[in-house]
Design a protein around this nucleic acid. Structure first.
Lengths: 330, 330
DNA sequence: CTGTTAGCGCGTTCAA
DNA sequence: TTGAACGCGCTAACAG
């Protein structure tokens, strides 16, 4: 592969001048510039990004660390991150932590080694990886899930009040034994949604029925067996709040197996507005989260922190919207 | 951020020795090694990947360029790529071309500049980006969609015969006016599926009804309006082969709007086994593609090409499976 | 406006 | 076994 020196000598100039032309820095004589451009084109010269970044002591890639690329919420978020980054000339490296602290840690390590310009992190809650980020003073922002400790740039959804609103909606629809299939304990969004569910029950003067609550990982399979446990007995809940749409799939499978119909037999509401939710019968009530915007906002925060590292940390909260549909109608 | 020299001087050795310890090369005195390790830990030393890669003249990241991160087929494929890469110590940078040749070109350019170790490409068909890859002699593999020109490592699905099988299945189910909503003309998988559809009709001694064929981009919205055009008239098809599940969503929306039921009114089969397809009524007949395996296989091909650049190009074809369900039963 | 010089942080010669 | 010196390819200083 040709280097900038190859281009320079072919154009009969010094490497420095070639560099200036290729980067549009300071002004060089038009004829020299011409020759450099020509030489670069002939040689199919492509600058070595590694050397350039080493010299400039900065990169233009940001790392996005999320729990599950196959969850539409995160892919939508990733789209937002990508678009925002792209617009400012940054590339995005997408890392899948699988909700596993060790994998998350490993990816943070890679981002640090490769001197990423910044990190957008949807954390499992691992204090270790957050500590690494802070120790190395690399710009980062928490997305979807806040991190504990020192103030940190954060972009989240008001997931707790949204969960409460959905629960209240089901109460108003006349459901009496409302259960919850929550995400893994310890993950902020999972905990918050469960709390919101409890908030609404308490506000309505009801007991919070511990036996109607189950935890599961954010996957269909886990939610499926949780739903089987909850629904396959006499004293079953007559409605369910589910922590996300991936899990809702598992719940729907369980209900189908048990011959239960949503809405009529069991009210159903879940986080995330998967496009499929309007295609099932009845259409599913969802709490729509602005995932794409979350990606956009978080990345803009990151980019402005990269530009101004000493600025105080801020938190942006976006709002989720309850979309009532047939699955919460008797 | 501390450099290897900082570690060295703190340990009272030369940078060269520190390097040897940190990389486990040649053997150094145990006490020196100990001191170096200690110094590195105390300083939270993290090698500068840029400098290291520049020096080694190689990187351990591969670029994956796909058309749409929000398409479950591609996210599943991406998972496969990631797992295979991960297993060999490579990172994956995920790039979204949006099925746009210019964006694809730009990402290829980035991969080239950053000296990616290799590229996994699901191409829009842009000869330009493929030309760039070939000119620069960077290892790459075509996934899901073959590329034209010189022999290239390729991992694909036998999508044409799968489309034929699905069409034959609908013929056997007694459908008589079978239409097709194909992907964008020019994209290999779209063209192949359309050809497979035609193959099956011809094999059954039927005419290929050009008026029952529509093209659309690989999105729900496009397929929705294509379906509206096809279905909202007297001489409508009584069955439809749809190029993928994202598009099938659009078709289902159109059918709902027209009050048409799949199976009974219009037979329906689509590529990709989205988990939601079993949750709708009736369950949808799909052609399941081994997307994850495709990612795995393609990446292993890439890695072995990186290891042996002169090896002859190979093509691996994986098989899709027809999964007949209610939507193709009257 | 141009060229020369000097490193960015590493890993790898080559001598000792 | 260890260290000094060099260079990967580039750009930022500094001279001229």
């Amino acid at each position: 592969m040709p280097t900038i020196s190859d281009v320079a000598s072919r154009a009969g100039v010094s490497p420095a001048t070639a560099s200036r032309v290729l980067n549009g820095k300071s002004t060089v004589a038009p004829d020299l510039a011409q020759r450099v451009q020509a030489a670069a084109a002939e040689l199919q010269y492509r600058p070595n990004g590694l050397a350039r970044n080493l010299r400039r002591r900065e990169t233009t890639v940001i790392a996005l660390i999320i729990g599950d690329v196959e969850n539409p919420f995160f892919t939508s978020l990733a789209r937002g991150v990508e678009d925002a980054a792209h617009a400012e000339g940054y590339s995005v490296i997408l890392c899948n932590s699988d909700e596993d602290a060790a994998k998350e840690r490993r990816y943070v390590d890679v981002a640090l080694q490769e001197r990423a310009a910044g990190v957008v992190l949807s954390s499992t809650g691992s204090t270790e990886s957050i500590g690494m980020l802070r120790d190395q003073r690399i710009p980062f922002v928490a997305v979807d899930r806040p991190v504990s400790g020192a103030p940190t740039d954060t972009a989240v959804v008001d997931t707790r009040s949204a969960a409460a609103a959905a629960t209240r909606h089901m109460i108003e629809q006349g459901y009496e034994r409302i259960g919850c299939i929550a995400g893994p304990a310890g993950i902020a969004t999972a905990d918050d949604r469960l709390e919101g569910y409890r908030d609404a029950l308490r506000a309505a003067g009801r007991r919070v029925p511990a036996r109607l609550v189950r935890h599961s990982e954010f996957k269909a399979a886990g939610a499926r067996s949780a739903a089987m446990q909850l629904l396959d007995r006499r004293e079953r809940p007559d409605a369910l709040l589910v922590a996300n749409c991936v899990m809702a799939r598992g719940v729907l499978e369980a209900m189908a197996e048990l011959g239960l119909h949503s809405g009529r037999d069991v009210g159903l509401a879940a986080f995330d507005d998967d496009p499929w939710t309007t295609l099932i019968t009845p259409p599913m009530t969802v709490i729509a989260q602005p995932a794409y915007d979350l990606g956009l906002v978080s990345t803009r925060m990151l980019l402005s922190r990269i530009a101004a590292p000493e600025r105080a940390a801020t938190t942006t909260t976006l709002h989720a919207t309850l979309v009532p549909r047939g699955s919460t109608q008797r």
